[in-house]
Design a binder for these strands. Structure first.
Lengths: 175, 175
DNA sequence: GGCATGCTTTTTATGCTTAAAATATATTCG
DNA sequence: CGAATATATTTTAAGCATAAAAAGCATGCC
């Protein structure tokens, strides 16, 4: 998924990916269309957020997401826990954390109890930078969602909750 | 976004990214929570699709998406058009198409009318391979969405339509 | 204590993705 | 015609992402 651009001129003239997949024989067409619409919405928002993070803060979304995770862990977090929460592979985080540490936004401490474990925490600079970006982030989202009434928003939240449960049930139950 | 894993053991024990961002001052908290739920659903589905594509077909999602676009263009498609429909940058497609051409799934033809333009089309092998994968893809989605009633699915489709319009309005109107 | 086992993180190989610059071709307009 | 401008694609540099294997450490059990 995804894409960004502005100068390279992709973003504003996208067509719509919602008709990506043709009907399957046993007809899961409705579900597939729903899935593609979901994907389209997510991609539109995510791409815009990436673009703005880059433009306004010269920051990437993965970096932002990592700071966001640490924001609510006063005493820092073990790398493996960050991996689970961010839904990314542990190997992915090695380089990401490395770069954020270089920039001075996070600190790494080897656990005294278990020397395999790294505790990652926000520095003061990281906390300040994140707050700044998170404020703007909220505004961007608010802007993109603004035509949705409170009622529609609540309904969507509820329906997505059901969907999430359905997905999780399938993933948990291997078949 | 994203992640896969199975042997590397990330996928099944994810925690949930829905609480990534804290409240913003001017309070777009509701919208942000909604956005994070949307993102979670998309990530869960997308990751599973990637995993299964790899496992069952040794194929990647971008490759699959590209074939899906070409499937409905009998006479092929210009690269730029594919780029818009897939919502990815043109530069991205160069290598992707190259690899799919190597595998014999797509053909590239220079347009006789405009030598800048490449027309990409499915080969018979590509068409067959895609149909095979698309069938399974439909089943996976059907499976993950199966706890959602037809009524809920329809409601979700409708609400997402409204959201999409809201997002597009904001993106089209640069402020 | 010492070995087997398992957990946490890093490394490696590969592929996806973008932005920006470069290249190549087409079109427009003076 | 020829220069400026526009369009289509590729190249480049950097970063993100995964799976699988390797390395390092802890723990349990004999």
């Amino acid at each position: 998924m995804n894409s960004e651009s502005s100068t390279s001129g992709v973003s504003p003239d996208w067509v719509d990916g919602e008709t990506k997949v043709e009907e399957a024989p046993h007809d899961h067409g409705d579900e597939t269309r729903l899935w593609l619409r979901l994907l389209t919405c997510t991609t539109l928002v995510e791409t815009e957020v990436r673009r703005r993070l880059r433009e306004e803060f010269d920051f990437t979304l993965p970096r932002f997401d990592l700071l966001a995770q640490l924001e609510r862990a006063e005493d820092g977090m073990v790398l493996g826990e960050v991996s689970k929460r961010m839904m990314v592979s542990p190997g992915n985080l090695t380089a990401l954390v490395e770069r954020l540490a270089e920039s001075g936004y996070v600190s790494r401490t080897v656990s005294p109890k278990d020397r395999r474990v790294q505790i990652i925490a926000l520095t003061e600079a990281g906390r300040a930078a994140f707050r700044n970006m998170a404020d703007r982030h909220g505004e961007w989202i608010g802007d993109m969602f603004k035509q949705l009434s409170a009622r529609d928003g609540a309904a969507l939240m509820k329906e997505l909750g059901k969907l999430k449960n359905s997905i999780r049930a399938t993933l948990t139950n291997p078949q």
